[in-house]
């Protein structure tokens, strides 16, 4: 009998407890599949955030460490510098990465820390019950912006890939969405490239995933996916923002042309 689909051994047997239609489960699976395909499950440490994915350490089949809210990149730095042979990923939500942990995010990127960040942008604070996040888009209702986010009061959403792309140390930055199979396949490609960036010692990599949170968006999973298409992708365009390999190639060609 030919096996056409098998659960990756990058995941444990523990059933995930995310809400129906949540993007975290999909993102975990993509990370797990990439670990397995690259054969690094046994030398990966997942730095797990404070947020809905705080239980990630139970789901992924590698070493794990759960730290303080927003400090994933600092924790990852400590591990990577102490045991450089380890593949270190920091999995973070938008409140975690772009609000309380913004300094750690920017500085780990600027140091070109040889780590990989998986950034789940669901434009909301999931775990604490749907408060406004730094990535909440204008007009979006949350429990702390009940009339919808307004720039005059709450400022503008922060596009992290664009923000980090000006840093010399940001070696690989890409944004994908978890709304449909084609985008999810693309997301996995990006995650794989981010892992490879680290494995080759090329420095800081981050993949941002636009991710549905039906529960705190007060939507059905179907409508949540629609919101990603209609509202999020226009504000957070998909694609690769930095790619060390393309940049190295372009430099070489430039040299050759001179």
């Amino acid at each position: 009998m030919k096996i056409v689909f098998e659960k990756t051994n990058g995941l444990t047997e523990v059933p995930m407890r995310y809400c129906p239609g949540c993007g975290h489960g999909v993102a975990h699976r993509l990370v797990a599949e990439v670990m397995e395909e690259l054969g690094v499950t046994k030398r990966t440490v997942a730095v797990v955030p404070v947020g809905c994915s705080v239980f990630m350490d139970e789901y992924v089949n590698c070493d794990g460490i759960q730290g303080a809210h927003g400090r994933g990149p600092a924790i990852a730095t400590g591990i990577k510098r102490s045991k450089p042979e380890t593949v270190v990923i920091s999995y973070q939500g938008d409140g975690d990465l772009a609000s309380i942990g913004m300094a750690e995010t920017i500085h780990s990127a600027s140091r070109s820390e040889n780590i990989t960040i998986i950034f789940i942008n669901n434009a909301i604070y999931g775990m604490t019950g749907g408060q406004m996040a730094p990535t909440t888009i204008l007009g979006m209702r949350t429990t702390t912006s009940p009339a919808g986010r307004r720039a005059e009061i709450n400022g503008f959403p922060i596009p992290m890939c664009e923000l980090l792309s000006s840093l010399e140390g940001a070696s690989y930055l890409a944004r994908a969405a978890l709304d449909k199979p084609a985008h999810i396949i693309r997301a996995k490609k990006y995650i794989k490239k981010a892992f490879e960036t680290q494995i080759k010692g090329k420095g800081f990599s981050m993949v941002e995933l636009l991710s549905p949170c039906p529960t705190d968006w007060g939507m059905t999973p179907k409508d949540a996916v629609e919101r990603i298409r209609q509202e999020m992708i226009p504000r957070y365009p998909l694609g690769v923002f930095r790619d060390w390999e393309a940049e190295e190639k372009a430099k070489k060609e430039e040299k050759a042309a001179v």
Binding site: A74, I75, T77, G78
Partner: peptide, 26 residues
């Protein structure tokens, strides 16, 4: 060994948290 000037004390102690988790003296 390894020295790093962190971006803040908050980052420094969390780097320690990570480094200590690998079993070394920090």
């Amino acid at each position: 060994g390894f020295f790093i000037q962190a971006e803040s004390e908050v980052a420094a102690i969390n780097m320690l948290f990570g480094a200590a988790s690998t079993g070394i003296r920090v």
